[in-house]
Design a protein around this nucleic acid. Structure first.
Lengths: 251, 251
DNA sequence: GACGGCCCTTCCGCTGAGCGGAAGGATGGT
DNA sequence: ACCATCCTTCCGCTCAGCGGAAGGGCCGTC
């Protein structure tokens, strides 16, 4: 039988077999999910485990290992960014007592790099290291609004997935929203992922003024909490974004 | 020429070429650090970059990519643990206003999984994703004290690296400290890594009662700040450790 | 302009690292 | 005992991976 692809690609396929919904897998499950023969999987997994990229627990299942996370933590766009942003995220968390999030753009999705949550804050489905589409989240809208036109067109070309009845799914509506974000400098996403949540987000800029991340607070939506005034969060989110930008060398 | 080791091992060697002191590398530097011929390095790096494990910036240098961190964030012992611990870390941070850290054991070192720092807190050299030896840090002493005897003997066999004049470097002294940690349930490490810092650490337990992590506060050392009373932090650190343990299913 | 140092990028004949079917084993449930 | 599921080991075969060689780009120095 001919090999389907390179060893490197196979190794990476093994790593990509793990997900938030399938964080622990048997050898056979990894084989199935990757399409690699069991013996091949066995060889690769064995080596990855020896190195620490995968760890095998008492139940015989494999999970992503500490060593992989450790190397991954060197990524400037994740924990490197988080390091610079943390004081300002903490400040924002202090003054709002709500969910605070930091995210970056990757492909056509946002990747959440950090999150600080109060026990009393509205629950959010985001996970550090997790992804969501650009069009439906505060941080995603900020990142999309400031991205190259080609990317914007690509996203606008759809499909724009619906999460709730409030999710922006029409390209013309999204286009207007993006223009508004660029004009006002903040994005307000109300009930687009979950009806109970509203996020206020602002752009974080790098040394050359380019938008490199977005910071947001997620608060109860006015629909379920009439006392919520989204606009009251704008100054604090802006201040946090400016602080982080400064820490990143933006002048 | 005979290959020195497998493709998988080579891929992992490329990833391991990156470190906190060398987070960005040229292709030639990666080749040098791994000992792989330039052409081989070029092939592997190209594929890793295509996948997102490495990212190449405008300066032509490679750095660890977001995708690798993203997969790594699935590791139960890092961000998975952090997720459960975060509320309690935040509480500890609130009540102390000092550095708060969460760490796990790997090999003969601690790996820092999370850190919350106040701007006014004493500076610490630890980095999320970074490592330090077990014998010289509060969290390390906790993890070592509760580790299998073989590991303890291995560490006691040395070498025990010295960081300051206060670092415990004699095996008999360390053995006594470990017994003390087990007896009192907390570790106090005074000026062992930096003379200006003192840490108070306690064990975090998993469902079966096994120690799976350690939580600590790092405060100014009494030597430089005579007003510091380390014992005053013990109850709060203990409470945080208990809270995290409970969240992990320990009863 | 010439030269050297450094950092790539591409090519392609050769061969041994990687492949995976086959065989066998362990465990748990019925 | 049988079956399903999940491994673990073996080994002949072949093509994926190898890396020296060739070539190129960029920058600094003389």
């Amino acid at each position: 039988m001919t090999a389907r692809f390179t060893v490197t690609a196979r190794v990476l396929a093994v790593l990509a077999a793990f997900s938030a919904t399938n964080p622990r897998l048997t050898l056979t499950e990894i084989s199935r999910r990757t399409g690699l023969p069991l013996t091949t999987t066995h060889r690769l997994v064995g080596e990855l485990a020896a190195w620490g990229a995968l760890e095998r627990a008492g139940d015989g299942r494999y999970r992503i290992g500490l060593r992989l996370w450790e190397v991954g933590s060197l990524a400037p766009r994740s924990l490197g960014l988080r390091e610079s942003a943390m004081p300002f995220l903490e400040d924002l968390y202090e003054v709002t007592r709500e969910n605070v999030q930091l995210a970056v753009l990757d492909g056509t999705e946002v990747v959440y790099v950090e999150r600080l949550s109060a026990r009393s804050a509205v629950s959010v489905i985001t996970r550090v290291g997790g992804r969501l589409p650009l069009h439906a989240t505060g941080v995603g809208l900020v990142l999309l609004a400031h991205s190259p036109p080609e990317l914007q067109e690509r996203v606008l070309a759809g499909p724009l997935r619906r999460y709730t009845r409030k999710t922006i799914c029409r390209p013309d509506e999204l286009r207007r929203m993006l223009a508004d974000v660029r004009r006002t400098g903040v994005a307000i996403s109300d009930g687009q992922i979950e009806l109970v949540s509203l996020s206020v987000a602002a752009p974080v800029r790098g040394p050359g003024g380019e938008v490199v991340a977005a910071v947001s607070v997620v608060v109860p939506a006015p629909e379920t909490h009439p006392a919520t005034n989204p606009l009251s969060y704008v100054p604090a989110v802006r201040a946090a974004a400016r602080g982080i930008s400064r820490a990143l060398g933006h002048s």
